[in-house]
């Protein structure tokens, strides 16, 4: 019985939010505000039970128990600096929260420089030159196509060159987007735009797919999970 009541409430909330599609109304406002409260309440629970206790309190207690004074002091200073986040509640002292922020942001930025550059730039450039140890501009694949013309050999022959050209023209487009008479910049504009439009079109198609999935899931919940429950109860 409990499940039916809870599920029915879930359906009520779902429909309340959908009712916004007709127009703003008290049901929607209720659901929206309930959501804000419940989400932040949930955040409080998680922060306390899953972050503060296991990640801060227990390690601190452990190091105090084992008599490691230096480490305990070190952690207590950390906790103290962390507590400065609470100064956000006051308008006058909110600048104190800049201390923890500056440490976290500073450390994060410094640490991220090398791996980010490596993952996003160096490795990407590298694989624009070689894939699986082979050059992407492989003349042999083009010869192979002329020897035995077929869709798959055409794909193999054009794959590397099209990818390399694509990356280059779009990079040129991004870095020299101002008006320029340099022939390289001038004549790569149109192909760059074509690549971009096809790429963004694909991204749009995927985005659309994602949005629909969310709606399908809600309808699936109502039609295939909640409704059978009610049906069973009535019959």
């Amino acid at each position: 019985m409990g499940t039916i009541l809870w599920s029915t409430f879930a359906v009520f909330l779902t429909l309340s939010i959908f009712s916004f599609l007709i127009k703003d109304n008290p049901f929607y406002k209720f659901a929206e505000h309930l959501f804000a409260g419940i989400s932040v309440g949930y955040l409080v629970v998680i922060t306390f039970t899953q972050i503060f206790i296991p990640r801060v309190w227990k390690p601190l207690m452990n190091s105090i128990d084992t008599g490691n004074i230096l480490r305990s002091a070190f952690l207590i200073i950390g906790v103290f600096i962390g507590l400065l986040y609470l100064s956000r509640a006051s308008n006058k002292y909110s600048w104190l929260s800049r201390y923890p922020i500056s440490i976290v942001v500073g450390f994060g930025s410094g640490f991220a420089i090398a791996p980010s550059l490596n993952a996003r730039v160096l490795k990407q450039l590298h694989s624009t030159v070689v894939e699986d140890g082979q050059s992407l501009l492989n003349i042999q694949k083009i010869i192979a196509f002329f020897r035995d013309p077929s869709f798959s050999s055409l794909y193999n022959a054009t794959y590397g060159p099209l990818l390399v050209i694509g990356v280059l023209v779009v990079l040129i487009y991004f870095f020299f987007s101002f008006k320029n008479d340099n022939p390289v910049i001038k004549y790569t504009r149109t192909p760059a735009l074509l690549y971009m439009m096809v790429g963004f079109g694909a991204a749009f198609g995927y985005t659309f797919m994602a949005r629909i999935s969310l709606f399908v899931d809600r309808m699936n919940f109502i039609l295939n999970r909640w409704w059978p429950l009610i049906q069973n109860k009535l019959m």
Partner: peptide, 8 residues
């Protein structure tokens, strides 16, 4: 990943 992030 969600489809929104897939192309990226």
């Amino acid at each position: 990943v969600t489809a929104v992030n897939a192309a990226r």
